[in-house]
Design a protein around this nucleic acid. Sequence first.
DNA 1: GAAATTATTGCATCCGAATGCAACAAGGTA
DNA 2: TACCTTGTTGCATTCGGATGCAATAATTTC
Lengths: 355, 355
Amino acid sequence: MRKQGLPPLQGEASGEAFSRKPITARELARMLGVSQSAVSRAFTPGASIAADLRERILKYAAEIDYQPNAIASMLSKSRTNIIGIVVSDMQNPFYPGLIEKLSRSLQRIGLQSLLFNITKGSNLEEQLSALRRYNVDAVIVISATILSGSTLSWATEGRPAILINRVIEDTNLSCVACNNIEGARAIADHFHSQGARRVAYVAGLSHTTTNRERQNGFVTRIAELGMTLSAQIEGREYSYHAGRKAALEIAAKKSTDAIFFANDILAIGGIDALREEAGCRIPDDIYVAGFDDIPMADWPHYSLTTFRQPVDEIVRVVVEMIEGDTSALLRAATTIRLSGELIERRSTGVVQKTQ
Amino acid sequence: MRKQGLPPLQGEASGEAFSRKPITARELARMLGVSQSAVSRAFTPGASIAADLRERILKYAAEIDYQPNAIASMLSKSRTNIIGIVVSDMQNPFYPGLIEKLSRSLQRIGLQSLLFNITKGSNLEEQLSALRRYNVDAVIVISATILSGSTLSWATEGRPAILINRVIEDTNLSCVACNNIEGARAIADHFHSQGARRVAYVAGLSHTTTNRERQNGFVTRIAELGMTLSAQIEGREYSYHAGRKAALEIAAKKSTDAIFFANDILAIGGIDALREEAGCRIPDDIYVAGFDDIPMADWPHYSLTTFRQPVDEIVRVVVEMIEGDTSALLRAATTIRLSGELIERRSTGVVQKTQ
DNA sequence: GAAATTATTGCATCCGAATGCAACAAGGTA
DNA sequence: TACCTTGTTGCATTCGGATGCAATAATTTC
């Protein structure tokens, strides 16, 4: 084996500092007098290669700053290590936290997140066509809204898809969701035990499964408890301003003891409107509860009673599904329900213990 | 030219509905009796191909649902159409809006966003090594914190990088930032014209350029106006709770008329703490101002005077830089400063006109 | 010590599209 | 009619690694 000195490292001082092409496995191999296959194997855990050869290659690779080209690897392995994340509403503070945790967990196991931020209005298929062309290994859909099941099936065709907080039975889409019915019932029970009897529901986007479940769960439990549903607002969106508007409609009728908003950001808008415009005191005049437990729910001005979504667990389950046998996901879509937790705060008259 | 009937479309009912491999350009070409090059050219705008041939190919491609494999295309063109977006803090409500707009604008011109959500603590180079292997066409860094210039240069080596709201002179990194000094001075002027004389500054992360500029701009202008800097809190992070803590320290000294927080989320924490724990009325006892103009700043409970960052313009400029000659960016890093706008609200005693 | 096994390594090919180059056709000019 | 453009098309190769297969070396078995 002929020994050969290391070629000079590519220095910053070597003239053209820009756009210098990265080294390839072949070049590295030639420099070391081994085959390109060896280099490839050195970087492939479990590949058939002698320990000392691997070490020699890795060591030299580190020196000259060689890294395998991920694109080439994708092409030959037909695996991208990229997960498509479909989002439509980052304004709701619940989502950034979820997305952050999700992408970090994925990164930890070597997967990157390709963001698809879809917009209502314009052509969805066009927006999602990239999702197909990029050969992502799996798709995670965080958008509760906008996308129809069929559009989703089309966009994710051939690769595993997991919907978060959105359940679509009857397709090849897996779902991981909070137990909305449990949560809504917990809110109803809580209202009842706090003495409320005439309660109202403010919907988010009416046609979303999340909304339907929370609504049904709540309304059903209300009836079981013998409480009156004094109002029910059809929602147009999950937003602060929608919450304000809905709250005012309910306040105008003066027949409600407690309002359950489909999520926290609605509830917070509601609280503001009730206080500023309707002159209500909370919780003295009316109770308010939300759903999600976003950071603002804990702000003292709101101190919002809410049903906390198990974000960490949702992330964990989703990542496990992806990490595991994704092809199994394709064959048999799974739906998983996770339990949340009622967080009682001052907006429903619960006295907080000082920290 | 032998005419041949269309082969049957891949039906959902064709047996194995799962993981059926997508059609390739070669197959499509063979079906139509043309060369693979022709197919490639049909999908390449401006390529040398007769209009009718292109049309025939595109039409048939649409029928059998063929789409060029993006991975293969990346490999041969050495262009990925992927932009790496480096983020470290999605909890600050300013960022989700920015990220959303950014990724949508990029999508509109055919670029996808690969998210790199970096975490303090753990090994940054490891977290960013994927950024290099994935051959992204450009990198946008939205993290004001954490990353050192040298780490960034390393991670983005060989490809254009644009930092948002973070200026690093002296490197090959481009920057697009809000004119923080202008903003901080505007706040100082505003405090002055509202009658404040003893003012305080609450820092975010002390070592970030954003913080330094706001701090210097503010302190300098304060001096010019003959006002007193009654307190200056060194910040550890840009967060609601950091804002609370800082506000209480300042309130304890009872010598301050107005506080300028390095950003809105700090200011909002500050307002809450001042009201709840320090018993201050705002704006009666003390003025508060922030920076960014996040959605919560407009919530009535806070009605926070702030300096609005020109988010849309920032996004526009960044996307233009990327859309334009990126190689130019590599050769000559650019720094662009954009003007913001003072938004006067009740937290500094400005009476809002009712909407 | 010979035969059988097992561990390494390299060769050749493939993944799917892009593209330089040559071949060829259509239209124009003299 | 002969020659020259201009426009199309296909062929062959390339992008950078991954991997089946065969060749070779190392180790074990009897």
